[in-house]
């Protein structure tokens, strides 16, 4: 709402530069999200925190889908390895260290992303979707069957670490601080991703999306750009995995299954690819739709049938997604 109204005002005012308006809107939305824990009941607060985490995952995927023109079905792997990396670090460090968990999660996701990227970018873009899907299955089979390390079907359960900065603070996460912690990291990631997509590097990615052959002809090492893009995307997806693991205190193989990647793609398409904000909106829209459908028709209702129909209708009639109208403004 805020975005819409300000967008309408901005051209009329004229005096305020685009950047000022952008950061003002950003600040307003941040302020709303910061005070959300005081307003929302317990259930909806957790709901919102999870939307932020899914939004981060979706944003990471948007770097590939919206800016580079690659459909990744491998984000479940990066997300899942972030979860398992964090779980491993939390189970083996005493006392459990949050920062170590983030580091291990990022290392796991980054490693997997490098591996997947190296093989998947060797073929033209249509194959990228196929090979990442196959790699998602490979990692799923490995994690599912390697019971001694990953806990197999049951996954790993641990307790939430303290938020600790040596000599400064050390406290246990409650629902308020958890929300703020997630919000801080997601907002930081957004700013960073926005910076990346507007950098010369991001411009090259967009040029690959628009015309790969020409970009190659100009002399850019397209494959290397793609590999770096997949790795960056994987790192942010891994961060989302770490946050999800810390919030829910478990790591489970279900999240490595490609269904997670599929959801991520749905978030992106619904919200609007190539906007970074859209995927978060899409994640919220998807989760709200799911919640609404299961409240109306019961838990057993196959909510993915109507969601899938909405998804296809949106691809055909609203390819820009919910936030498509703001795409130019957001990327300016």
């Amino acid at each position: 709402m805020t975005l819409a109204s300000l967008d309408r005002i901005s051209p009329r005012k004229g005096r305020l530069s685009h950047t000022t308006v952008f950061w003002m809107v950003f600040a307003v939305i941040m302020a709303l999200l910061v005070i959300a824990p005081f307003v929302l009941p317990v259930f909806w607060l957790k709901f919102l925190t999870e939307i932020l985490i899914w939004g981060l995952l979706a944003m990471s995927s948007d770097l590939l889908l919206g800016y580079t023109g690659l459909i990744s079905f491998g984000h479940s792997v990066f997300f899942g390895l972030g979860m398992y990396g964090a779980a491993g670090a939390l189970l083996h460090s005493h006392p459990a260290n949050l920062w170590l968990a983030i580091l291990c999660g990022l290392a796991g996701a980054g490693g997997a992303a490098l591996f997947v990227a190296y093989f998947s970018t060797r073929l033209r873009d249509v194959y990228f979707a196929i090979t990442t899907l196959i790699f998602a299955q490979i990692f799923y089979v490995i994690i599912f069957t390697w019971t001694s390390v990953t806990g197999g079907e049951n996954g790993l359960i641990f307790s939430r670490p303290h938020f600790a900065i040596p000599f400064l603070v050390d406290f246990k996460f409650d629902r308020y601080t958890m929300h703020w912690f997630v919000l801080a990291l997601v907002a930081g990631s957004y700013v960073l991703l926005r910076r990346i997509t507007r950098s010369p590097f991001g411009m090259v990615l967009q040029s690959i999306r628009e015309n790969e052959a020409r970009t190659r002809a100009i002399g850019y090492p397209v494959d290397r750009y793609k590999i770096v893009a997949v790795m960056l995307s994987g790192l942010f997806a891994g961060l989302a995995g770490v946050l999800y693991a810390v919030q829910n205190e478990f790591a489970a193989p279900d999240f490595v299954f490609f269904i997670t990647s599929g959801d991520t793609i749905i978030f992106n398409v619904m919200g609007g690819i190539g906007t970074l904000v859209g995927p978060i909106v899409g994640a919220g829209f998807f989760q709200l739709l799911r919640e609404l459908l299961s409240r109306l028709f019961g838990d057993q209702f196959p909510y993915l049938i109507p969601v899938g129909m909405v998804f296809i209708v949106m691809i055909i009639f609203l390819p820009q997604g919910l936030m498509g109208w703001a795409r130019r403004w957001l990327n300016q």
Binding site: I71, L304, I305, F311, I312, I315
Partner: peptide
């Protein structure tokens, strides 16, 4: 689903068929 997408980015057809697979799988379930 696919005919309206002729002439669009081939990636949209991947998305559309993925949506169909979701619907069919959940219908069967």
């Amino acid at each position: 689903t696919l005919r309206p997408l002729i002439g669009r980015d081939p990636l949209t057809t991947i998305l559309a068929t993925f949506g169909i697979s979701l619907i069919l799988q959940n219908y069967a379930l």
